[in-house]
Design a protein around this nucleic acid. Structure first.
Lengths: 359, 359
DNA sequence: CTGCCCTATGACAGCGCTGTCACGCTAGGG
DNA sequence: CCCTAGCGTGACAGCGCTGTCATAGGGCAG
């Protein structure tokens, strides 16, 4: 297609020579700037195409101070939520002419390394902090950077950010369970021993508020902390809940991941869902639908897209840092894992009847 | 912590001035080069720290021709496999002092844009192509680039790559089902209408080879193509399989995603797994364990890690491009979704007995 | 004591762009 | 017919580093 094999990449000067114009003109043309005559423009573009010319961002950056890159700091890369958020973010950034630099900081070592070397500094125009629990010290360090920050799926006072209203969403989810007749509603929250993932107490707060509104007594026995991915911890929690004098008829899981495991454990001990136990998740995980899990769906992709837009704005006008906040809606998606509380409709509530099934 | 607020980022010259040495010396020190006296080194490092100095890669790149960046081309970002692969890749690259630039190219438009503008060109030291089906034209364009290429989870003649032996793995999985007494083994392959995801016929080939080895007649009625994430298509395929004169007793799904949906569909129509139908997946998806899905586990993270190492090598010595191939092992992980074929042990095989259960 | 080598450091050009300024040329009014 | 605008283009410096070459100074052998 092209013809000549281009060894190390043509320079702007090469294009200029081929087009018979000055480098300045090539630069203007390629940036769509100022007034360039149609003929010149055509010749330059032809030459550029023929040489497979791609501009060196390094050189431009050096002059303009802009890198055309956005750094993204994430606590991991293999969770559904982050994947979805990045899936929204990446194309949106590209569309704005920005490249995406990803820093996955998972271990303490990587963490120290990142904040020590600050690789993003001067090598990106903005830093997006996604679901990443910063220590005060780290926050201060980033603040010193003088680099525009955007917080994604988390919020910080006076900083640009995009996130959902966790309190309201959890309140809504809990009300939904209450409306189904449930009064004993457990809450499973993920343990975060490493302290990497950003999490407010927001969802738990919403849960408690909804219960209080409904006049249901608070019972901290029903709130249990479990490991996200590890089995035993969740088994134990379920055992505890089921052995209470007055066991719950519904469980609100802070994340879908926990809900999934919960479903598995419940199936293992032959507790039918939702007949004897309703399960409500939070996230809108891609697997929620096939699993028939009721959930509070976060618009993960749209969080990413909104983040890209914020990044663009904040780069363009760094002064508006703190004024830009986007709150996205959470959607309650009722599915088969939630149903009326035993006794509230036509359900039996003897509790100890045989529930063994074939699966 | 630092004191002075650094507005636009200190330069190497600022550090030099503060340390009372020349820029050259600062450069040498920071790169750990050549001989710098311990005292000088200490003073320079102190000054750099005090100024929150971070080197401008743009400037270095301009001189050295190296960007310290690796571009990664992926067909999406929200699949489990790619997330896991990137989760392995990112830290490994960072450890090698490389930053990771991610291009998620999902739509035809993005695709044209990427290959037209070639953003990776001259802005990265290598391009990793991950599970991305390149058109011949695109391949040619990349070849013209003169940029080191590494193929991940796919292979190309004479190009560096890291992948698993799909044929052998599928053969092994199929043999496992055969050894459980299954003779009628269906195969579900994902439709890829957009043609984005790279996929050889390798797994299907391995499946067929194993059947042939075992002297089982090939029956293309048992091979069905389904959409990965979409329900109806899979429902229809299951319907077809179950309505065959001699229905299968096992299904080999080309990906775990398909297997998950298959499990849901089977539960919906009250076909007990594995009593009446064994299900075997492929991928080693994080959800496979909680779902109790037998699968052929790919070392996704290690693919990423190996890719980082290949990238490093290929950047260091571009001449060795084609010689570097890494083949990683696939592990058969038997779980509860596979069991002996009906009739081969102590199972009934009447087929129409009541299989309804409570779930 | 002299000369040489080696170590530690500095000077300087230049990487590939962009932004500023200057300049030539054409068109239109006085 | 000359002067002034304004458009299209070129010249040139300089962004912040690195690599090369030059050089000062100290130690050691002769």
């Amino acid at each position: 297609m092209v013809g000549e094999a281009v060894e190390k990449g043509a320079t702007l000067a090469d294009v200029a020579e081929r087009a018979g114009v000055s480098p300045s003109t090539v630069s203007r043309t390629l940036r769509g700037l100022s007034t360039v005559s149609p003929q010149t423009r055509a010749r330059v573009e032809k030459a550029a195409r023929e040489l497979s010319f791609a501009i060196s961002r390094s050189a431009s950056s050096l002059v303009t101070g802009r890198t055309g890159r956005v750094a993204v700091l994430v606590p991991n890369l293999d969770s559904w939520f982050l994947g979805a958020a990045l899936a929204g973010l990446a194309p949106a950034l590209n569309a704005a002419g920005l490249d995406m630099l990803v820093y996955s900081v998972t271990t303490a070592e990587q963490r120290a390394e990142f904040f020590d070397r600050l690789p993003a500094r001067r090598n990106a125009d903005a830093l997006l902090v996604v679901s990443f629990a910063l220590s005060p010290r780290e926050r201060a360090r980033l603040d010193d950077l003088g680099m525009p920050l955007v917080f994604v799926s988390q919020h910080e006072q006076g900083r640009a950010g995009v996130y959902v209203d966790d309190v309201e969403a959890a309140r809504r989810g809990t009300r939904y369970l209450l409306n189904l007749g449930h009064r004993r509603i457990a809450y499973l929250e993920p343990a975060d021993p490493s302290g990497f993932a950003w999490s407010s107490r927001a969802r738990l707060d919403g849960y408690r508020e909804a219960l209080a509104e409904a006049g249901v007594d608070r019972d901290d026995e029903l709130v249990r902390r479990v490991a996200d991915w590890q089995g035993p911890s969740l088994d134990a929690a379920v055992g505890r809940l089921l052995s209470l004098a007055e066991p719950p008829t519904a469980v609100f899981a802070e994340t879908d991941d926990i809900a999934f495991r919960l479903l598995t454990v419940l199936r293992g001990v032959n507790v039918p869902v939702p007949a004897r136990m309703s399960v409500l998740g939070f996230d809108g995980h891609a697997m929620a639908e096939p699993w028939d899990l009721s959930t509070l769906a976060q618009p993960a992709r749209r969080l990413g897209e909104a983040a890209a837009e914020l990044a663009r704005q904040v780069i363009q006008d760094p002064a508006t840092h703190g004024e830009r906040h986007v709150v996205l809606p959470v959607e309650l998606v009722p599915r088969g894992s939630t149903g009326p509380a035993p006794g509230s409709r036509d359900e039996g509530d003897k509790g100890e009847e045989d529930v063994r099934n074939g699966g």
